[in-house]
Design a protein around this nucleic acid. Sequence first.
RNA 1: CGAGUAAGCUGAACAACGGCGGGCGCAGUGCCGCAAGGCCGCGUCUGAGGAAAGUCCGGGCUUCAUAGGGCAGGAUAGCUGCUAACGGCAGCCGAAGGCGACUUUAGGGAAAGUGCAACAGAGAUAUACCGCCGGCCUUAGGCCGGUAAGGGUGGAAAGGCGAGGUAAGAGCUCACCGGCACGGCGGCGACGCCGUGGCCCUGCAAACCCUAUCUGAAGCAACACCUCAUAAGGGGGCAUUAUGCGGCUGCCCGCCGCGUCCCCGGGUUGGUGGCAGGAGCGCAACUGGCAACAGGGCGCCAAGAUAGAUCGUUGUUCUCGACAGAACCCGGCUUACAGGCUUAGUCGCAUU
RNA 2: GGAGAAGUACUCAAGUUGGUGACGAGGCGCCCCUGCUAAGGGCGUAGGUCGGGUAACCGGCGCGAGGGUUCGAGUCCCUCCUUCUCCG
Length: 110
Amino acid sequence: MRAISLNKNYQFQRLYRKKAVGVSPVLVTYAAKNRLGIHRVGITTTKKIGKAHQRNRARRIIREAWRLTEHRVQPGYDFVFVARGRTTLCSMQEVHRAMQKHLAPYFIKP
RNA sequence: CGAGUAAGCUGAACAACGGCGGGCGCAGUGCCGCAAGGCCGCGUCUGAGGAAAGUCCGGGCUUCAUAGGGCAGGAUAGCUGCUAACGGCAGCCGAAGGCGACUUUAGGGAAAGUGCAACAGAGAUAUACCGCCGGCCUUAGGCCGGUAAGGGUGGAAAGGCGAGGUAAGAGCUCACCGGCACGGCGGCGACGCCGUGGCCCUGCAAACCCUAUCUGAAGCAACACCUCAUAAGGGGGCAUUAUGCGGCUGCCCGCCGCGUCCCCGGGUUGGUGGCAGGAGCGCAACUGGCAACAGGGCGCCAAGAUAGAUCGUUGUUCUCGACAGAACCCGGCUUACAGGCUUAGUCGCAUU
RNA sequence: GGAGAAGUACUCAAGUUGGUGACGAGGCGCCCCUGCUAAGGGCGUAGGUCGGGUAACCGGCGCGAGGGUUCGAGUCCCUCCUUCUCCG
């Protein structure tokens, strides 16, 4: 299934006000419950990371990691992933591992 | 073989599985909707660059009056051509550099006018400090006059250099060179060559300026349409129907509209078009032209997103992969860039 | 995506018909005042880098970076870099 993406600034601000649920050198994750019963995901790549090419690279890596993780996460939450400087240099597996760690409390219980 | 010059091309490839944007088709008639239609599924085609970048120029397109008049402002600056246009490109001219192939060049006007040239120096657009020469007074020396050859200062000192000439000197005279003016010849032209003349004219216009040419402004967050709205209310300033205010435009004219501006308050920040068949791309042994380019022929349609699509894993190969991501579209310029390839000249050495 | 503005020492900053040696303030160092500190007062360094000198000191380069015009650029022109602001 396709995830609805967050695009409005106030939607991002709602998550930024909370504490990050996971922090690592390659990824920062924010999470909040919504009442829609579906996933909504936003990706932030700031200008600090680099030019357009580096930011596109970081977005693709994060999006691929989310694609492999999505089926294990309980629906009904908003997530925001923030790329950091090292995200453009590392491999997808590193980001994938960091994301699994950050989202472990939200996994579907067996 | 070595060194060096110029121009151009390219910008890792392949396979499997999974994933993403767009177009087209099919299907269940599964879900939503009154409907148009949308979502889900399958198949198929297609999917970033030479700079997509910087936003430095030019144009298309759109709105503002139908884009109008004048001033101010801005831009360009050898000539001829090319182009939709340009500050771009091509060829040529002049100047500078290089043994050479070749490269670089904002390169109009300083006798239209104004301004600036600090410090140093006697003097900076006009000059006599030292010196040289002559005359007078005459002890050293002083005074008057002539002189720009020599010294010194400076980025720049009154064309350069040699000879004649002179009291000493000086384009004062002469030869050559340089600059200027006039005439002739060649060239579409910039300009070049030749002849004659006299020697009054420093530099800076990327200082003001003059001359010639061009120039209305804003920009796809433009703009058009649909929907919801921009409300109601409160406070304050200006104005009292135009000699006012707002818009087109920095100012004046002209035109259009009419109460207007600020704060509080509360609300909206959705959708569709614009949007990709265009000054389009590719090919060649076509025609004209030195070339830029123009004309014709054949073939092709090739991203169109809207938080923004090209990726992940595995395997193989090589030269081990740089700079880097379309956002309305084109033509240039500039800047960044691992490597690889091609073509055409030049110089040196060796051999024939 | 588009339209603009700025950059001068550690910080805030002045610098116009282009002219010597780049004002100033905070800061910093030393001294005085105090039992000690803060505040206050006085003096000083100007800061960086390269070269020379035992030292005092002298010279060159430096105004975001690189070129150009000029005898001479913080200033004028061109190209880049960085930061900030605005855009129903």
